[in-house]
Design a protein around this nucleic acid. Sequence first.
DNA 1: ATAGTTCTGAACATGACTGTTCCGTCCGGT
DNA 2: ACCGGACGGAACAGTCATGTTCAGAACTAT
Lengths: 205, 205
Amino acid sequence: MKRPLLDVVAEVLVAQPGASLAEVAEAAGISRTTLHKHYATREELVRAVGVRVTDIWEQAVERVAKEPGTEAGLRQLLAAMIESGPQLTFLWRNPALDADEELTRRYIDVERRCLAVLDRARSRGLLAASATNWWLLQTMYSLVYTAAEAIEAGKLAPLDAPDLVLSTLLHGLGGPIAGAAGDGTPGEADAATATAATTSSPTAS
Amino acid sequence: MKRPLLDVVAEVLVAQPGASLAEVAEAAGISRTTLHKHYATREELVRAVGVRVTDIWEQAVERVAKEPGTEAGLRQLLAAMIESGPQLTFLWRNPALDADEELTRRYIDVERRCLAVLDRARSRGLLAASATNWWLLQTMYSLVYTAAEAIEAGKLAPLDAPDLVLSTLLHGLGGPIAGAAGDGTPGEADAATATAATTSSPTAS
DNA sequence: ATAGTTCTGAACATGACTGTTCCGTCCGGT
DNA sequence: ACCGGACGGAACAGTCATGTTCAGAACTAT
């Protein structure tokens, strides 16, 4: 019942980065005055959430950092990222946090760990040697973000997401001519690219 | 010298959606009072920009809507989207605009046109039959968005972007085992996946 | 029970943004 | 020279979020 304050605060701010302190306090079940006693200013609070989110992100990557560069290893990495997807966007969309030295240092460090897994996969021929590390990361981030958002919107089953993202990342959405592995049997497809949402309902956001 | 007011306003608001009306007015070279005379409330202004952005997006798609579902056709679609990338994010990130009936109607309509091109490509076997329309669109959007942001950050040459996105969308970033087309010769690679940025410099956002 | 900590509610000051009003100015057309 | 419309500058009221203060309630440990 007595969830740590930072937990609730982070949850609220991640969901609504523009929430007022009054809303945050109310969601946490404390008065605004008390909230101010824990975090003197909004900046301080945002930073605390940033640190916590980085913690989560760090642990998630740590958990899979030792995975070999196999397809299963990649899948685990993606699953971990998707799981903490909403939290990550909090980091990405907070220019204020870029000013924090320690935070960006840690962020870069975690990113390095990610790249290590990716490099391992690349050395096994699982990833294209021609793909830039930078573009690889960006693509991964954007797919993960999209998947996380889709899950939140109820358009994608959490269990399907990692496979879908992995398949898309590795093979793209190209047809069987270019997309399927070398062997023949073009009838079986990827088995993960489908099974998304029933309705298409293409709305903004 | 006498650029239409809406042009400047849109430019500012697209770049900084949170800009105050004073900032917008100053950027437009007019007084805040005058700005209010053109657009009574901020909501009205945002909507006007939304309409204009939709116009641009509509024209861009219209320009390539008749392209056949070939790889070149897809490339044109992607190029058009990347070009108006920043403007699109203005639509995506403005929940207030979702309330506007006409706007969402037009948006869905444009999206349908996009899907038409994609469907044509799919029927030619260029896109996987198993890929959901929905996930296809999402993936395209996210790659386009990422590329547009990268261009703005100077990390990606505008001319390279469409090919890079197209290649990633069709074949993914998987290794030559799964990524290259059916023929052998694993040495030649995709010729588009590389040539991005020199430094990796993995910073947030 | 008592002392000390923690939380609360209310109030206040401040600053930013928005929307509005009023009046003077500038400029083009007649 | 005159008129009408558009623009500018200044001021004002209203709203909202933030940060601060303070007196009192609630709770805890001894």
